[in-house]
Amino acid sequence: MTAPTDTSTAKFASYADPERLVSTQWVADNLGTDGVVIVETDEDVLLYETGHIPGAVKIDWHTELNDPVTRDYVDGAGFAELMGAKGIRREDTVVIYGDKSNWWAAYALWVFTLFGHEDVRLMDGGRAKWIEEGRETTTEAPERDRSEYPVVERRDEEIRAFLPEVLDHLGKPLIDVRSPEEYTGQRTHMPAYPEEGALRGGHIPTAHSVPWAKAANEDGTFKSADELRAIYQDDLGLKTDDDVIAYCRIGERSSHTWFVLRHLLGFEKVRNYDGSWTEWGNAVAVPITQGQERGEAPSR
């Protein structure tokens, strides 16, 4: 059972998977719809507590989607437990929104996809748009019954890349979605962000530099399909049947780009390298290119 697609705008209809985005109005219209669960996922762990969409449940990326010990996501049992505790059923339509132009919302959507949750969508424009429009928020936590969510093994291979796979991939399309300063190696972390510790600066050889924000409008909504095609297909020359890997610093901004390529432009094979620069920039003997040139794939 899935909720209806938001057909209210021509923009959504122009995307490869129009059912993956909903508007703030659609969410407002479906707050009480059985089988629709609204989820807020933010960078700031307290933002939800200051007020959220009525009925929305909170999922925190740091403390709930990550394994607390290994640098990895929760496993099938952990995800089933989390979904059960949040009252989300396998057949529910999950609509995720958050702060920072939906970075962490897109990251959460990507993790839901690792577990094959079928109907998971983003609210275009995220938290900021909802608030900007003066829509209702509440600090009241929703009361939801526990659900039975099946234990589904995580399937990494289709949409997640690990370091050895990225090494094998060199020569095929790779997109670095960090800021230009991080790409050239001038800095190893996001401007005005915490130093998360990379010993080397620069980018993976051959990676295109396309900062994630190119895909977003000023208000945090996604650009139209035509505008997105101009960026990724016309400018970079990528084709929808290319094998593409995107990366950033820890995988959150590249989840945003992954969503754009996979669901808005319909690329068939896109993987997010969540190890990203905090792994590559610390790994021993992997090739790195500094400066604005893309660099060349090492011969093998």
Partner: peptide, 14 residues
């Protein structure tokens, strides 16, 4: 550490 995460707590250190 559990409710906020060690990474976020770096802001307090700073």
């Amino acid at each position: 550490e559990n409710s906020v995460s060690p990474l976020r707590l770096r802001g307090l250190s700073g």
